[in-house]
């Protein structure tokens, strides 16, 4: 009888990263690309795929090599492992979706220094076996993706009247471009609102006896 997914070490980490410990609004990591790529949903989608791929596999590799990595140089090793996977993502995007790559190219390269990757490698992968580490990384990547897509699905319709590049129904009737939404300040405001929502929804109940209980 197999254990339930949520009871395994990897499954637990996967679900925590997805929502309760979400990397973007809970741990405040990976903010740069969150702000930069979310004005077009298509770009966002490819960025999310790239980041999830790189984070999951970097965690897996760091974990597999964890007994062979000297403590002093582990940061450098992690960065180089991440760089190898990011180059794969970069080459793949350049080959298959050159238009997207032209817009988000530098940010794809910056996945290397994305704090989510380093954070998961440091916090989880160096002390856990490869499979849970892979799930932990994948959960963090998908948690990040959820937040980014939510932001993109507000910014693109308001700024361009489209979603994933397709015009929304009856666009002429209602659409008036909210230019601020596709410019940098719009990114800051949207992320602040989404974080506010996320933090309020995941706010932990205070531990210990409920309010009003005898001291």
């Amino acid at each position: 009888m197999p254990k339930r997914f949520a009871d395994t070490a990897g499954g637990k980490a996967f679900l925590l990263n997805l929502w309760q410990d979400n990397p973007v609004f809970r741990q405040v990591l990976g903010i740069c690309s969150t702000l930069a790529v979310t004005n077009l949903a298509t770009n966002t989608l490819f960025m999310c795929l790239g980041l999830t791929f790189a984070t999951a596999l970097t965690s897996w590799t760091c974990s597999a090599l964890r007994h062979h990595t000297p403590r002093q140089t582990r940061m450098m090793v992690q960065v180089l492992i991440a760089a190898a996977y990011v180059i794969v993502v970069d080459i793949a995007l350049r080959a298959y979706v050159p238009d997207v790559h032209r817009l988000i190219g530098p940010y794809v390269g910056l996945i290397i220094t994305n704090c989510i990757i380093m954070g998961r490698a440091e916090a989880f992968a160096i002390k856990n076996p490869p499979v849970p580490a892979f799930l932990d990384g994948a959960g963090a990547g998908l948690g990040y993706s959820g937040v980014l897509l939510a932001i993109a699905c507000v910014r693109e319709p308001l700024g361009f009247g489209t979603l994933f590049g397709l015009p929304l129904p009856a666009r002429e009737a209602w659409f008036h471009p909210v230019t601020i939404m596709v410019m940098p300040p719009g990114a800051f405001f949207m992320l602040a609102l989404v974080s506010w929502l996320g933090i309020s929804l995941t706010a932990r109940r205070p531990a210990g006896p409920p309010k009003g209980a005898a001291k």
Binding site: F25, V28, I31, F188, F189, A192, S195
Partner: peptide, 9 residues
């Protein structure tokens, strides 16, 4: 973070 983001905006 959120209030800092709003100010940054």
């Amino acid at each position: 973070a959120p209030i800092t983001l709003i100010i940054s905006g």
